[in-house]
Every structure is written in structure tokens, then in C-alpha cells.
Design a protein around this nucleic acid. Structure first.
Lengths: 205, 205
DNA sequence: GTCTATAGTCCGATAGAC
DNA sequence: GTCTATCGGACTATAGAC
């Protein structure tokens, strides 16, 4: 027990607390996740938890910052695999997602306790902004390469692309159905195709 | 006190409870709205509340069903004013909305307590489905009239249109900014324009 | 149909020994 | 750093008088 000896693979209490919180924030949201539940899942005593994290906000903020770093890194690597900018945007939309669980970040925004606390809201806002700017850059590159029309605001369209995925999660949770999620994505891909310059290419389907 | 005499304009306790619940569900969501808060706003005693509504679910379900009926009716009238089907879809997107408050229905979907209870989930799912089918019909009519291309799935695009508005609320709440909401809508209108057959008409702007 | 009083539970947080 | 015990408060719901 206690701090792991150098080189050992024992996971520290602090680490287990953060990981358990990350899972529970996704499963239950912020307000509905209780410190008791976190303690139980992390197998950590009451006192230890408050030793490492004075308040629930401290723990949640760290968990969310870690979510941001990990998801942005993963998405960046994923998008870098795309053969072209416009294909990257399509890849973003069609990336496999569990619609019923909801977006780790998007879910948070509907909780007033998160929105009213800067330490909790900031990681959510920053990550969604990061996503939007990443997509915007793909759109700009696609315009420069002549894949996409150049008569639209890449900033606005990027925001709409992000919103489609967020909205897809809302629809899927309302219907408790992955089909509802997939239908939104299908529609998003159709809408995106309207920005393509190579529209005659559609005939080869 | 008590039941209003025939013809009087006194609002019954029951009615005040439902109205207070409707407001609070929008402001705070389901889980974060406490019976005590409802009682206070409705100015109704503890016992009266449980006389009319045995549980919190009973009260919330009635409030949500009333929301559905009212909002669907309002949206229907609003869309009927549009001069054409495709203009109706544009009107749906650009309808003035308070992004920071969130959609009355969409907000509910991120709350597990709502999603896990059929009596609470059903009104949310039914209303979102109603909206989607209403937009789908506009798209179909627009295709028939030659306003829109006829080579896309109206069902999928309608779902994406609804999702854009839901996602706009998520972005606006994350950023606590109406500007973020408006940016998504602007992008949605651009994407929608790509489905128009009269694309040369863009030159007259 | 309305009221006050209160039950029983869980919440987030603290105390203090080891 | 970890533990158990416990605080004060808010929650949803019930009891029972009027």
C-alpha cells in the first residue's frame, strides 16, 4: 500500500481516484457522480480522497483536464491519417462513437454546476474549441487544394460540423438508439458533400 | 384557497405546480430541480404537492407532456408562415433562440435519471421525433417543388438539421456565449444551401 | 385540499488516530 | 498517506391534524 516503490507497477491511490472519476463523469455526469461512488470504484478510503483532493471540484477538474489532453491527442493522430483535408472532415464525422453514452465534453455542458464553475467549464470549452479549430483548418486546407468551394466561412461550417456530432449524441440518448446517431451522421455527410467542388464525382457511386 | 369557483381566474395549486415545474426543468434540469424549490415557486404547501402528484416523476412527466404539446404547436404555426418549404427549413434554423438556456428537450437527454425512466424519456424522444419528421416533410416538399436536389435522403438530412440546433445549444453553453450558438447556425445555413438546386442564385447576393 | 412536522437517506466535507 | 467515525445540511417522501 501507499506510494509505489520506484519501478513498481502499483497504481497510486491518487491515480486510481482520477481514473475512477474520469469513468464516472462520462457515465453519470458531474452532479450525479458522488465522492462515495468514486471512492468505492477507486478502492480508496474517505480520508485519502480528501488528502489528495480537498474538494469534489478539484478532483473533477483534474479528471477533465486529463480527458482533454488525451482526447485531443487521439483525435489529432486520427485525423492525421486521413489522405486529404476534405476526407479528414468526413473521417471526423464518421468516426465510430457510442451515441448512447454521449460526448465526454458535451454531456458536461447541460449541467449547471459545471457551467457555473470556471475550473470545470474551461476544459470543456477549450476542448470543443480545439476540435472546432482543427476542423476549420482542414476546411481551409481543402479550400486551398481545390477540394472544396471557397465561397463559405470555414469557421462557421467547422462549428456546424462539431455541432452535428454533439446533436447526434443528444438524439441518440433521447431515442436510446445508435440508429438515431447514425442517421444524423449520414445527414451530416450529405450536407458536407454539398461543399465539394467535385460534385460530378458523385456519379461514380 | 382551494379549487377556484366556476368562472374565477384563480389559478389552482395543481396548475401552479405544473407551471413552476416547467420553468424549473428548463432552468435547472430534472435531477437538479428539487420538490422544495417547486413548492416555493408555486407557493404551495408540502402536503398539497404530494396530494396532487405522488412523486417527483409524476409532476415532471405532466410538465414535460405540456411542454411537448405547446412547443410543437408553436413550431408548427411558425413553420406554416414560411413562403416555401426550403425557406421553412431555413426559418427553423434561424429561429431566434437563447443558446445559453439550452433546448427544453435536449437538456433532458444528458440526465440519466430522465433517460432511464420511460415516463420522462418518452415525451423528450417523441417531441424530437416530431420536429425531425416536420423538417423531413419540408425537405420532401422542397424536392417535389424543384427547390432542392432530389438525390439525398430527406430523413437523414432532417435528422442532421435538428442535430445542428441541439449541438448549437451545447456549444453555446460550453462557451457561455450566444455568439457560439449563432456561428453554428450560420454554418448550418451554409450547409443547407448546398442542397439547393438554384445554386447560381447565390451570385445575386 | 391544505397544512406542519418529521422520517430516513445520501450528500459533500471534516476530525483525528495511526 | 491512509484509515474510521462523524458532522451539518439537503434531499424525496410520509404522517396525520384541520
Amino acid at each position: 500500500m501507499g506510494k509505489a516503490v520506484e519501478g513498481m507497477s502499483v497504481i497510486s491511490s491518487r491515480e486510481r481516484l482520477v481514473e475512477a472519476t474520469r469513468e464516472l463523469l462520462w457515465e453519470h455526469g458531474y452532479t450525479s457522480t458522488s465522492p462515495a461512488e468514486i471512492r468505492t470504484r477507486a478502492a480508496v478510503g474517505q480520508g485519502s480522497m480528501y488528502h489528495h483532493f480537498p474538494t469534489k471540484v478539484d478532483l473533477a477538474a483534474e479528471a477533465m483536464l486529463r480527458n482533454s489532453a488525451e482526447l485531443e491527442q487521439g483525435m489529432d493522430a486520427y485525423l492525421n491519417e486521413a489522405p486529404s483535408p476534405s476526407q479528414g472532415v468526413r473521417s471526423y464525422l464518421s468516426k465510430p462513437r457510442d451515441g448512447k453514452k454521449g460526448c465526454r465534453f458535451g454531456r458536461m455542458t447541460l449541467d449547471n454546476a459545471v457551467v457555473e464553475n470556471e475550473r470545470l467549464r474551461a476544459p470543456v470549452a477549450n476542448s470543443l474549441t480545439w476540435y472546432r479549430q482543427r476542423i476549420e483548418q482542414l476546411l481551409i486546407d481543402g479550400q486551398k487544394l481545390g477540394e472544396l468551394r471557397d465561397d463559405f466561412s470555414s469557421e462557421a461550417v467547422a462549428a456546424a460540423i462539431i455541432a452535428i456530432v454533439q446533436g447526434a449524441h443528444v438524439m441518440a440518448r433521447a431515442d436510446q438508439s445508435q440508429t438515431s446517431f447514425d442517421r444524423v451522421i449520414e445527414g451530416g455527410l450529405i450536407l458536407l458533400e454539398g461543399l465539394s467542388l467535385a460534385r460530378t464525382a458523385r456519379t461514380d457511386r
